[in-house]
Write a protein that binds this DNA or RNA. Sequence first.
DNA 1: CTGAAAGCGCTTACAG
DNA 2: CTGAAAGCGCTTACAG
Lengths: 295, 295
Amino acid sequence: MNILGYYPNVIARSLANRKTNTIGLIMPSFSDMLFINPFFPEALRGISSVLSENSYDILMSTNSKHKEELESIQKFIRGKRVDGIILMSSRVKDECIEFLKQSKFPFVVIGSSLEYNDINFVDNDNEKATYDITNYLIQKGCSNIALIAGSIDLVVTINRLSGYKKALQENDIQINNEYIVVGEFLEESGYISAKRLLSLENIPDAIIVADDIMALGVIKAIKEKNLKIPEDISIASFNNSILAKTSTPTLTSVDVNPLKLGMSAASILINSIDKNDKSKSLVVDYEIIFRDSTK
Amino acid sequence: MNILGYYPNVIARSLANRKTNTIGLIMPSFSDMLFINPFFPEALRGISSVLSENSYDILMSTNSKHKEELESIQKFIRGKRVDGIILMSSRVKDECIEFLKQSKFPFVVIGSSLEYNDINFVDNDNEKATYDITNYLIQKGCSNIALIAGSIDLVVTINRLSGYKKALQENDIQINNEYIVVGEFLEESGYISAKRLLSLENIPDAIIVADDIMALGVIKAIKEKNLKIPEDISIASFNNSILAKTSTPTLTSVDVNPLKLGMSAASILINSIDKNDKSKSLVVDYEIIFRDSTK
DNA sequence: CTGAAAGCGCTTACAG
DNA sequence: CTGAAAGCGCTTACAG
């Protein structure tokens, strides 16, 4: 048939056999962090490579506001445009997860849900990662450890907060709520949050930051105060982007393995569609890369 | 109808009216630079926002090798899956452009073609940008100016090379082929290319680099030689990513406005589809951001 | 102007 | 096992 130049009309085929061979990718809205963050292209690369091998295409949602994410999902499902959906992030009481679960439509979350265990998801053990880092800083003699987290709506923030608190408690260090700051995944936000911490009576001797970009702002604020990193204040952050390697000082940062998160998410989803697998979750290893910003 | 919970089947509609309201996005293959580069997510953001406003969705190609790009295009078109196509980069004798033009299928290129003027495209004036930078460096007293470019297959490389040569010639500076190095858009490649330049008998007093990430490698090589930036060697690069702001020293870099490139590409394509517009091209302004890596 | 029929290009289930 | 018909869920062109 190929010799005759025949090529099947994919749309007609989809209509007939009720299979689109397309996965809907729900992007974080642009107001959101993930777009700037190198996490996103890496995860997309992982998703794309696995879907490609399995002859699935990607239909990307084009929403600019957070509210539009659910609308995109509904549009994709009701319009019968996709066989499954990948959510790139998860929130507390996530209405997208809620809707997808209720619809019994195949989906997978990069991240996890506080409300449901019986869904497909891939995630790091963010609680343990933050627990490990906090413990490490304590081991190195820090006792006034602050946390600059991302939005409190994000499940990842809740998990990290909980790992942070757990480590402090186990080491009999009082949790100081002034040391917990919530920000956005932007350099400016890191800067502002750090300035707040540095204006406290007891300034922290270590700061854990949710993302490398934010950490750059933190470094800036600390340098402005003429404090030394890591002598006066240690910094540890997340995502191990190229910024962590190139900043001054270089940043201790957690590699969350976005490529593997993306690949795993895609393959779990495909199995759930093609083989009707039960809900499955996977914990992807993280790795703490120690650099000059910690002792 | 909405009250009754009716929602049209988009697939069926597409089959009936031969319109998918979907744009195919041909991603650069992963081996390629653009994926790591912040250029890509920004351009995607621009594309996405315009398509979203016009009720178009994005079908992303999932190719991992360069050769697969053309296959993706053929699959999209023959399968009648998209109404138009956006190419994220352009090469010399680009077979994707060739095929699309021949098929008379609506498309737009982010970048330009050396072979065709009568296609839809958006691009910076890369020749002039490089011309401007080279002139600036000459004005500041540099005369041994090197160029670390990207792949020679890319049209952007050809254009920049030509702007570089033009500025040298106009200033009666001999073009030294040893000063022209071709690399990949990776830090390591910048490092290796710079080491080569620094091993020459007459080392350059200025280096123009195709991307900030590569420039980091260049900085590293120069520091290893205990040379000073910009006193001994000036550096200027492209893309004005966050790396340019945060590296030590900070980098003079060209902001190519990827957001606008993406938005313009999308709107030109939509006009070409919906209003059957003639081929149109747009030159997007660049801006040279001067920082500490140049005098 | 309205409504029923034909058609988009496939797949599937069924008659032979 | 093969081949023609019915059906996927819309839109479009046409008869009334």
